[in-house]
Design a protein around this nucleic acid. Structure first.
Length: 494
RNA sequence: GGCGGCGUAGCCAAGUGGUAAGGCAGAGGUCUGCAAAACCUUUAUUCAGCGGUUCAAAUCCGCUCGCCGCCUCCA
């Protein structure tokens, strides 16, 4: 099945046909670097990371550009508050962003341009727009004239007249039309500036993305992504600038991810209801966060809560437990006899059939507008079937092992696209245990001592005492696990 | 007010015309001295409500109710 993507421009899923066969150009609006990133940023970046990886996985040569907007009102305001240069602020948060993305396991885009490295391009573009009559200078500012671009608002499906009638649009005497937006801003005293034909100034908000995408991907390219909240005005304005300046279609497919919500409300800086990526990674593994984000379709809202993260953790643990069990079986040197080797237990054929279909089911899911939730379900389906085979096999034949050995390979292939699961199973499980154990108020020596005492009690059939020890430990957050090999323990809230 | 989206089991979540994926929790079972853990099995005659189109609808159309987003910086 060919790839289909939901295009905001048409509001429908469309067949993905790139400009050049075999190649894909993709631009994603990065962050304005004035603060630490929150989970909403994590979602956007993880979603487009997966899209980038999937495009490569199905054979496209992808050029992926994700910018840093490193000059903007909020950066300047922050710098003024701290009494430092704007670049001190932007540099700090660019580094923080890079660290966060690395922790989340994101692949590096092909290019990560900064707006301030492309001021020349931006000025050229503004000059073109002025020359073509789509923009005008006014007291050192340059504005885009929305009346000069008849298709304005085609992405968000709004109506210009109605928006102008809206009471919330501020009247600016410098503008010819209230809806006109700044391409270039005259810099006030104390603000950073660059020389331009209109005097010293700095770029407006939207123009940097138009200039940088054109620089790296050309006047027209395949995919442009970002959060839903960028549809208007940011992407609408990008379209107006780019198409007016270049006289051709700007972007073929517009992709927008849904928000992360807190109690069904959008997480945002202005509402103050946000968690930074750093906050969350203190409590949860990056793969858990990724798994959580991918468990919903990228366009749907996603409710963020400890409970939902815990559920994601439990789900991922199920996958890793299965993989660990398989690894354990494959590494054991237990041998069966030659005629037993050909046997496969009842679930064998079922698992065989499943395994043959896993990759194509994964493709189907992802080809349908990157349905990662469905893709994850394919993994669970395989896990259940594998567990059943392991459970009912009285002894492990060569044939069983061969069959099971395909699972880690398949999961690793899928993991290379989704970014989960990508860890060594026992390492990941061990890490989870360690994390939980850190909250206990009892030392492992103490626990081991009690386990030893309980072992003696049990050998004497003193079950009253042994159960007492077990209960005591459980109250302190330690769960005992009896097995044929002896007793081990784990934190009880796993 | 304008535009857009959503409403699927206790919870999370796929499915957008052919008779409800998957996960978590719950229940039953295997195992166990008893447990726990693990694993297996199982859990929606029904998709917010009401009408309509159709041989057939959670899926299409209309209306109603509820929630959310954008319209101002925002992933």
């Amino acid at each position: 099945m060919p790839l289909r993507v939901h295009n905001t421009l048409s509001g429908e899923k469309e067949l993905f046909i790139p400009l050049e066969p075999g190649k894909a150009g993709m631009y994603v609006c990065g962050v304005t670097v004035y603060d630490y990133c929150h989970i909403g940023h994590a979602r956007a970046n993880i979603v487009f990371d997966v899209i980038y990886r999937y495009l490569k996985y199905i054979g496209y040569e992808v050029t992926y550009v994700r910018n840093y907007t490193d000059i903007d009102d909020k950066i300047i305001r922050r710098a003024n508050q701290e009494g430092v240069d704007y670049s001190t602020v932007s540099t700090r948060y660019i580094e923080a962003f890079d660290e966060d993305m690395a922790l989340l396991g994101l692949e590096k885009p092909t290019f990560e341009p900064k707006a301030t490295d492309h001021i020349g391009r931006i000025i050229e573009m503004v000059e073109t727009l002025v020359a073509k009559g789509n923009a005008y200078e006014s007291e050192g500012d340059v504005y885009f004239s929305v009346d000069s671009f008849p298709e304005y608002l085609k992405l968000s499906g709004r109506n210009l007249q109605e928006m102008q009638a809206g009471a919330r649009v501020e009247v600016g005497e410098k503008k010819r039309n209230d809806m006109d937006f700044a391409l270039w801003k005259n810099s006030k005293p104390g603000e950073p500036w660059w020389e331009s034909p209109w005097g010293r100034g700095r770029p407006g908000w939207h123009i940097e993305c138009s200039a940088m995408s054109m620089e790296f991907l050309g006047k027209s390219f395949d995919l442009h992504g970002g959060g839903k909240d960028l549809v208007f005005p940011h992407h609408e304005n990008e379209i107006a600038q780019s198409e007016a300046a270049n006289g051709c279609r700007f972007v073929r497919y517009w992709l927008h991810n849904g928000f992360v919500n807190i109690n069904s409300e959008k997480m945002s800086k202005s509402l103050g209801n946000f968690f930074t990526i750093r906050d969350v990674l203190e409590k949860y593994d990056p793969e858990t966060l990724r798994f959580f984000i991918l468990s919903a379709h990228y366009r749907s809202p996603l409710d963020f809560s400890d409970r939902n993260l815990d559920e994601a953790e439990t789900g991922l643990e199920r996958i890793y437990s299965c993989l660990a069990a398989i690894n354990h079986i494959l590494s054991s040197d237990e041998e069966s006899s030659p005629d037993e080797d050909l046997q496969l237990f009842i679930s064998g054929p079922e698992l065989l059939g499943k395994l043959d279909g896993v990759i194509s089911r994964f493709h189907e899911a992802m080809d349908d507008d990157f349905n990662t939730a469905l893709a994850l379900a394919v993994l669970f389906d395989t896990v259940r079937c594998a567990n059943r085979l392991i459970g009912e096999s009285k002894f492990l034949t060569r044939k069983t092992k061969d069959l099971l050995s395909r699972i880690p390979q398949i999961f690793s292939e899928i993991g290379s696209v989704l970014g989960v699961p990508v860890s060594d199973p026992s390492d990941w499980l061990e890490k989870l245990k360690t994390k939980k154990a850190a909250n206990l108020d009892i030392s492992s020596e103490e626990i081991e001592k009690l386990i030893e005492e309980r072992k003696e009690a049990r050998s004497e059939k003193n079950f009253t005492r042994s159960d007492e020890i077990r209960d005591t430990l459980l109250k302190r957050g330690v769960r005992l696990l009896d097995s044929a090999d002896g007793t081990t323990w784990q934190p009880s809230d796993i």
